[in-house]
């Protein structure tokens, strides 16, 4: 469970800056910064941010749960996204998801126990001609099949089945 970076309130204060600036900053950009720093939005951080910005906690929570970019649970160090849009789907991207899920021992939407990998699916990245598309840590890979997924995982240090 060393994946979960301990949340430190004083560090958040550094990230947020002067309290007086609260009204000039946008909630979204602050949440993005915190998400990038901790790979999730710690509960205490949401409470502090609300207080700091003078935004009701209910509204902060509403925003934090609405956007896919935010997560209330820690995400892995590597984020693997597989496109399940129509074009990728007919070209077999489901097999790619199954293979990666099998290798990592997790279901789509889950994170490995060691906090290394998160597997997610999405519905079209606009690169249909390259399908099936996988995106690993922001880099797009085209024409990925199950064997290709194995190769990509190998580059990330995943050999064979991982329990």
């Amino acid at each position: 469970m060393n994946s979960e970076q301990a949340f430190d309130a004083s560090e958040l204060a550094d990230l947020l800056g002067d309290k007086q600036d609260g009204e000039d900053k946008s909630l979204m950009s602050i949440l993005e910064d915190v998400q990038a720093r901790y790979r999730y939005l710690p509960k205490d951080a949401l409470i502090l941010i609300s207080e700091w910005m003078g935004v009701p906690l209910s509204q902060t929570y509403s925003v934090a749960t609405f956007y896919n970019a935010f997560s209330l649970k820690p995400k892995g160090r590597h984020i693997i996204n597989v496109c399940l849009g129509t074009a990728c789907n007919v070209r077999g991207s489901r097999k790619v998801v199954e293979r990666i899920a099998d290798r990592l021992g997790i279901e789509p939407g889950e994170t490995t126990q060691d906090g290394e990998f998160t597997l997610e699916t999405l519905n079209c990245v606009g690169a249909c001609a390259l399908g099936p598309v996988a995106i690993i840590d922001g880099t797009h890979f085209g024409r990925v099949n199950a064997a290709g997924a194995d190769k990509l995982l190998k580059k990330l240090g995943v050999e064979g089945r991982k329990e």
């Binding site: 509960k43 906690l57 209910s58 509204q59 902060t60 929570y61 509403s62 749960t65 609405f66 956007y67």
Partner: peptide, 16 residues
């Protein structure tokens, strides 16, 4: 309270 989540998962809840 506020509207939380999105799409089919959307519901009204208090924070957390």
């Amino acid at each position: 309270i506020s509207l939380v989540n999105r799409g089919f998962a959307k519901e009204v809840k208090p924070p957390f």
